[in-house]
């Protein structure tokens, strides 16, 4: 996959590194000469100095053949422009924008640009008790209307040793996958949960807390 990344700073450095480690080709666009030199020295990426919302620069970066474009500058207006140009002018199939103002997340979706808000993600993680040790991951999807949570079943969990059929989880929740000894099990009604199982849960923000409590046995 060829990924164009527009932005700077540490987030971009680590994004590039992660994409490269997964075997993707990365082209980076950044307006600062110094930062471009630094990044080109440290990473095996093509670095282009310039304004990522400038059609000339996007062309130079090979936007025509890119599979994805990621705009993560500190300015929402630039991220929007990069993604709109990328998808409309150059037909990049996936364009994703970082929004700094969480209110802009919905606005961007209305304008046809996939957007994510770092602020919103962090706040929802904290609000939804990810501080709990067993929970290793929580991703809000569908504009925050659905949560996907990964958690490890503690030995004293009230659901351990019971089949899914016997559980009375709140409505609109689902144990989607069980990860056990490195194997993936898509559970059925007769699947028994064991201590140490890592389960992937689908919940709604409204029932997230009660579902987590039912599974972990925590009472507050």
């Amino acid at each position: 996959m060829k990924v164009l990344i527009v932005g700077g700073g540490k987030p971009v450095y680590f994004l590039c590194r992660t994409f490269l480690a997964k075997g993707h080709e990365v082209v980076l666009i950044n307006p600062s000469q110094d930062e471009c030199v630094q990044l080109a020295r440290r990473l095996k990426v093509t670095v282009i100095r310039g304004d990522g919302s400038d059609p000339t620069i996007l062309e130079e970066a090979g936007a025509h053949g890119a599979d994805a474009i990621l705009a993560v500058t500190p300015n929402d207006q630039d991220n929007l422009a990069v993604c709109q140009l990328g998808s409309m002018e150059y037909g990049v199939p996936r364009a994703v924008a970082l929004v700094n103002d969480p209110d802009n997340e919905q606005v961007f979706q209305k304008l046809g640009v996939t957007a994510f808000s770092g602020t919103r993600t962090i706040v929802s993680m904290i609000e939804q008790r990810t501080a709990l040790d067993e929970i290793t991951n929580l991703i809000p999807v569908g504009e925050g209307k659905v949560n996907i949570t990964e958690l490890k079943l503690p030995a004293d969990s009230p659901v351990v040793g019971r089949t899914l059929r016997e559980l009375s989880l709140p409505a609109d929740s689902l144990i989607a996958v069980v990860l056990r000894n490195g194997e993936t099990v898509v559970p059925r009604g007769d699947t028994t949960l064991r201590p140490g199982d890592r389960i992937v849960l689908i919940t709604l923000p409204a029932n997230h807390g009660p579902v987590i409590r039912a599974i972990t046995g925590e009472t507050h």
Partner: peptide, 29 residues
């Protein structure tokens, strides 16, 4: 340019403003 273009689109789509004008310096944009 990008601020003007974003504000124009937001005014139109989010706030339903009837007429919106944006100054844009770059002719290609």
């Amino acid at each position: 340019d990008n601020i003007n273009l974003m504000v124009a689109q937001v005014a139109k789509t989010e706030f339903g403003v009837a007429r919106v004008l944006a100054r844009v310096f770059e002719p290609r944009r």
